[in-house]
């Protein structure tokens, strides 16, 4: 009886190990995660550029706002990539206490 119980607990342990290994595998989810970062950088710069161009044509202050918002766009691009790589989640702002995403 005792032997049976031990055998069973061993089996159970092995299965648990297998399960946890599977979870650590790079899955479908992660792949999408890394695909994201490159485009994130570019799109932030594009938005900064567009805002700068618009404000410049509105206030006729070429190229003050263009330079300002390009720098800001660059910064926000870096921030987005940083968040993606550090897996801090997609949301605006810093890491929350119980962030579900990784």
């Amino acid at each position: 009886m005792d032997k049976k119980l031990k055998d069973f607990s061993k089996k159970l342990e092995n299965l648990k190990k297998l399960n946890s290994k599977k979870k650590n595998k790079k899955n479908f989810n992660d792949f999408g995660f890394y695909l994201k970062s490159g485009i994130e950088m570019i799109s932030a710069i594009i938005v900064g550029l567009l805002i700068g161009l618009f404000l410049d044509s509105y206030f006729e202050t070429k190229p003050l706002f263009l330079i300002l918002f390009l720098i800001l766009g660059f910064a926000s691009g870096i921030l987005s990539v940083f968040r993606t790589v550090k897996k801090l989640g997609f949301e605006v702002g810093f890491k929350k206490k119980n962030d579900k995403l990784h």
Partner: peptide
């Protein structure tokens, strides 16, 4: 308005966050 950011940094952080928000549909 990101949490845990000192007040002095807010004038810089808020536009960055807004651009980050606006870049969502583009990306």
């Amino acid at each position: 308005v990101p949490k845990g950011v000192p007040m002095a940094m807010l004038p810089l952080m808020v536009p960055i966050e807004i651009i980050s928000y606006l870049s969502r549909p583009v990306s």
